[in-house]
């Protein structure tokens, strides 16, 4: 136990030190909010993945796999990862081109609208706070399990581990620490697997046993275990496809993903990062999901399924690898929390307290840090006292932002006819359209059919809002001018050699697709089919 505590403590202290050192070069709000817009591919990819994968993926998703929902979660993982490529090319590249500090500022600039800026900021703060609190809860629970410390103390330690450098260094610190944390959990996910496979009796033996499992029948079948969620394979498959699409849209437009593109050194970096981030997410999640299903083969008696990776780290792996895995899980949570805090703080100071800006870069930087600090303290109070109302905020999770922003974000780039009124009402309707049915569903205890998921109701409402808004108030000349400006490629981007390199990544992605398909056919489908034909 001591080794685990020492390992994790060293990691947390290192994150703070590195994050604070990165902050010493922060000179103005441009550095603070968007890391000076000079970040290379490695930092963008690291931050994209680290912000996306949190304790939700490492503990939540792996828990569902362990509980019998392997293929369902794999399908969601595959579909969501492709969202990077669609998001970067349909939205990310263009918000980078708009040269803004935050995504709400992009909406405001695109439509010359103060009310849209406020609405985007409020929806962002609502959704990101929800997501952040659940991440903090995950990190604190993990720390409690590992250290045996009281939960409240773990909340404070977890909070300190990301708040100090986020408040001081802003995006510069977050980009660097995110990338380090991503590398840690990538190594953790990959190095743990061989020990898990070995303990499960080897790859073929594990697939064979799981295919014929009588304690959790169907755990690796396409139908999934029919006692877990829906009673038929078709319903489970539909659920997985629906949620895969929902999370792909989250990846495409959510502020904790797209804001990373604002920091990229050029548009080539945005596009290339999307390919590597997509590949990275698939590698990490696939490794995790196979690990968890194999852990079921090793020990099917873990009561709290979401702790299966923690159990494996402490009981299956050599101590040093176990320490790396636990540090990796913790890093995934801390890295997301730091991005979330920096997003909320940036939005508050850049978009809501916009009038507080002065002519002095130093003063502006100080105001931004104070704003971020205040947000940090509020988050600590919420997480520490965990009032019952917080459950409600957390319940909304990350999908609500995709419901509110999804259609508006993409059409803001691709529709010349989109007016300020269309964007505003589209965002508002999308938000309300998701929140109300979700609240109703939770209060009444009624589970809505898959096709009536609040996310999709929100999307439909958003489209209605856009259509009505565009009818009420036609597009202005300024909005058309902004649209046209968005589609003019900056001279600095025009470089045939760079174009060739960016284009060539398409072939790498195709090869990745072929290899992934082959991996699943050879390592999963064929041995599975052989096992069930016995």
């Amino acid at each position: 136990m001591t080794a685990y505590i020492i390992g994790i403590s060293i990691a947390l202290v290192l994150f703070i030190i590195i994050g604070v050192i990165a902050g010493r070069s922060v000179r103005d709000t441009n550095d603070y909010y968007v890391a000076g817009r000079r970040a290379p591919i490695i930092l963008i990819v690291g931050s994209l993945i680290a912000s996306f994968l949190s304790t939700g993926a490492f503990l939540g998703d792996t828990g569902e796999v362990y509980a019998g929902f392997f293929m369902g979660i794999v399908i969601v993982g595959i579909l969501q990862a492709s969202g990077y490529v669609y998001g970067a090319n349909l939205f990310g590249k263009y918000i980078r081109r708009a040269q803004v500090n935050t995504v709400p500022e992009y909406f405001a600039k695109r439509f010359s609208s103060k009310r849209l800026r406020i609405l985007a900021s409020v929806t962002l703060i609502f959704a990101v706070t929800a997501y952040m609190l659940s991440t903090m809860q995950g990190v604190s629970t993990l720390m409690t399990v590992i250290t045996g410390l009281d939960y409240k103390w773990c909340v404070i330690i977890a909070w300190l581990s990301f708040t100090i450098f986020t408040v001081y260094s802003g995006s510069k610190g977050v980009l660097i620490t995110d990338t380090i944390m991503f590398l840690i959990f990538l190594v953790a996910a990959l190095t743990g697997i061989p020990y898990i496979v070995k303990a499960a009796g080897g790859w073929s033996e594990a697939i064979n046993a799981l295919a014929q499992s009588t304690t959790r029948p169907g755990i690796i079948a396409w139908t999934n275990n029919l006692d877990y969620m829906y009673p038929t394979g078709g319903q489970n498959l539909l659920w997985a496809i629906v949620y895969g699409i929902v999370w792909a849209i989250v990846v495409m437009v959510s502020p904790w993903q797209t804001s990373r593109y604002l920091m990229a050194k050029d548009e080539h970096t945005v596009q290339r990062s999307s390919i590597w981030a997509s590949i990275g997410v698939v590698i990490v999640t696939t490794a995790l999901y196979f690990s968890s299903v194999f852990i079921y083969k090793i020990n099917p008696y873990i009561t709290d399924s979401s702790t299966n990776l923690i159990w494996a780290a402490m009981n299956v792996m050599p101590m040093i690898i176990g320490v790396v895995l636990l540090t990796g899980i913790l890093s995934a949570g801390v890295s997301s929390a730091s991005t979330f805090l920096s997003l909320i703080g940036s939005t508050l100071t850049n978009d809501i307290l916009v009038n507080k800006k002065t002519d002095s870069p130093k003063k502006n930087l100080r105001i931004s840090r104070i704003g971020m600090g205040v947000v940090g303290v509020i988050v600590l109070v919420l997480a520490f006292f965990n009032p019952p109302q917080i459950f409600w905020i957390m319940y909304f999770g990350g999908t609500v932002i995709a419901s509110a922003w999804g259609v508006v974000a993409i059409t803001s780039v691709w529709s010349k006819k989109m007016s300020e009124s269309g964007a505003f009402w589209g965002m508002l309707f999308g938000f309300i359209g998701c929140v109300i049915p979700k609240t109703y569903s939770a209060l009444s205890g009624i589970t809505l059919p898959i096709y009536l998921d609040p996310f999709f109701i929100g999307i439909v409402m958003s489209v209605i809002g856009i259509l009505v808004g565009n009818k009420v108030k036609k597009v202005s000349i300024t909005a058309i001018a902004e649209y046209e400006k968005l589609h003019v490629r900056p001279e600095s981007e025009k470089d045939p050699q760079n174009d060739r390199i960016t284009y060539r990544l398409m072939y790498i992605y195709i090869i990745f697709g072929i290899l992934l398909g082959l991996f699943f056919v050879i390592a999963y489908a064929l041995p599975y089919m052989k096992a069930i034909s016995k």
Binding site: M71, A221, R489, L505, I510, L516
Partner: peptide, 30 residues
């Protein structure tokens, strides 16, 4: 079905790759 899904996983990324290539070429003409 397990085999079909495995192949579909690969195909899904190939479709995304083609989209990426198209968008990169399109962007060069902006």
């Amino acid at each position: 079905m397990e085999l079909v899904l495995s192949i579909a996983f690969g195909a899904w990324f190939i479709i995304a790759a083609i989209f990426y290539g198209y968008m990169v070429r399109r962007g060069e003409k902006e």
